[in-house]
Structure formats: C-alpha cells, structure tokens
Amino acid sequence: MPLDAAVMERPVKATVKAQPLVDVRDLSVKFVSRESTNSAVNGVTFDLMAGEVLCIIGESGSGKSVTMRALMKLLPPNRTKISGHMRVGAHDITKMSESDMRAIRGSQISMIFQEPMTALDPVYTIGDQIAETVMRHEHCSRAEATARALELLQLVRVPSPERRLKAYPHELSGGLRQRAMIAVALSCKPDLLLADEPTTALDATVQIQVLVLLRKLQQELGMAMIFVTHDLGVAAQIADKVAVMYAGRIVEYGRVSDVLMHPQHPYTLGMLASTVHGNMRGQEIEAIPGSPPDLRRPIQGCSFTPRCKFAVKDCLQASPPVVQLDNGQYAACIRAGKGAMPAAPQA
C-alpha cells in the first residue's frame, strides 16, 4: 500500500531526532469465520511520538477500534489474522507472547473503554481494584498500594476520594466511574494510554469535564495517547494529530488543525459538512450519500468512490496514491493537494 512508503519516508520534524514511541506499519487485521472473511483493517501505518495525542476518527466499521485492540493484542487469536509490524517502546508487539503481553498491559500500555461498567469489576471496591493493579505490577504492600490508590483518585479529581475508595462501581455516577477507570489505567504510569471512545456514553456537561481532565493528565504525566472517536468535536478538543479512517484504511493524516480546517480527502470534508451545527438551520445538510462498503468483499480502487461527489473514472482503477503536503499532512486521494477542494465550513 502506497501509504506505507510515504509515511516511512516521512522526515522526523522533532528537534531531537527521537524514535517514535509507537510504530505501526502495514497493519492488517482479518476476521475469519467459516462463512466469510472480514478485512477490518487494511494496511494501516502510523507512528506516534512520546507525549503526543493521536485521534483516530472514523465511523462504525471503519476499523478504528480494531486497530487499537490489535495494538493491545486483545483480539481473539483463533479467529483473527494479523499481519504487519507493531512496536511500542522497545517491545515488538507482533512477536510477543501472551504472558509477556500481560506484563506490559496496565504498566506500559493502558486502556480505557467506552463503558466503565464492563471494565470495572462489580464485586470489588474502586480502591481494591486500583490497589490490585498497583500491587500486581509494582509488587508493593497493600498499604502502599492503597495509599497510591488514594493519590490516583485525587489525581483524577474525584471529590471526597477517601469515601470513594470504599465505593463499588454501581454506587458511582457515570462520570465518576469513568474517572475511576482512568485512575485504574494510570495506576502504573503508562507510557501509552489507549482510549476507546471513553466519553461517548457520557452527558455533554460530563464529557467536557473528562476531556479536559484527560488532556491535563496527559500533559502532566507526559504520556502518549491514542484516542479513538467518531466525534470530530472531541478530536478538535483533545488531539495533536488525527488519522481519519475509512473502510479499514487511514485516508487522511496530519495535525489536527490542518486536517479539520483544511481537509484534503473528500471523506473528511464530507464528515465535516454533515456534522450539524446551528447556523445550518433551514438548509439541507450536505450528507454523504450511501453507506460504507461491505468489508467482506474485495474492493477495487478507492473504497470511498461510490459515495464521493468528486469521483472520476480513475478512482475505480487502482488504490489512490498517498499525497503528501509540506505541513506533514497526508491524504489517500488523487485530488489531494490540488487545492480544488472547497474550504471547510467554519464552526
């Protein structure tokens, strides 16, 4: 896939020529069942520097969550075929055994989920669950671990943390539960935090609190974060870089301001145009017609072609080239960088 080549040749712009913390190359994930093979991720390549936030934006079925679960090795091994390279820090994820993986899960890579109720164990108190994780990875005493749990609850700004240590997950409100899950995830100071739509199920007034908190924590602790979301507004709030996924591929990548304000791929542009806001009242919304392709069938050419208003004959012939712009932005579209795309609507 051409995107790999382009990204591999990408000049490292950081002042220090540091190695990226996360390096994913040509990752493909296929779900195999007796009846069909679902190519959920088709050659995804990206890297992430320590202390950076990457937002993977995509709609359901775009492969964004699968990409992240592959990085954590959380996919069922007997039904999944993974190819490509994944490296986090010094660890080659692709080659790691399950027991080695267990050792770095929670300590170097942590994950938070959309629904904390399923990620937290209902029969243990919040304090016990945080202490448990701390003890498992740092081999300290229970008293030390409990003290650390209290610190962590303070860190995630849980009000009256002493009381909450003894609370069970169902006794907490949605926002507090999400904070507790973040505390569990941060308990061993991970280098990389994976976040799978952690604010989607929250109310608007709570979502903004959690987003602001995550951003602050990420900066205070200097950790890198990969944040999966379908909401462009969330990406605008929290990301340094964004990768837009469609049909298992990254179709556009770049700095958040570049991608959201000057999108180069018609899909990104369509997403922006179809996100509703108030000053569109009374007008027809420019919706992207149709629906995403069925990934159980082979796709020829650009997978967005059937829904693209700029489609031409060439789009169906071959995979689109990855066009690189001077600002580090990339788009997998034959029109990218030609400047013929209308500017994004100002929100």
Partner: peptide, 19 residues
Amino acid sequence: MTDVNALLADFAEKEASPP
C-alpha cells in the same frame, strides 16, 4: 462522465444487494 456514473451505479447495485 456517463461511464463513471454507470460504473458507480453498477457498484451501488452490487453493494446494496446481498442475498
């Protein structure tokens, strides 16, 4: 552009008709 549209229509038709 007509042949593109024909192609696309064909594509959409195939896409939209699982058994």
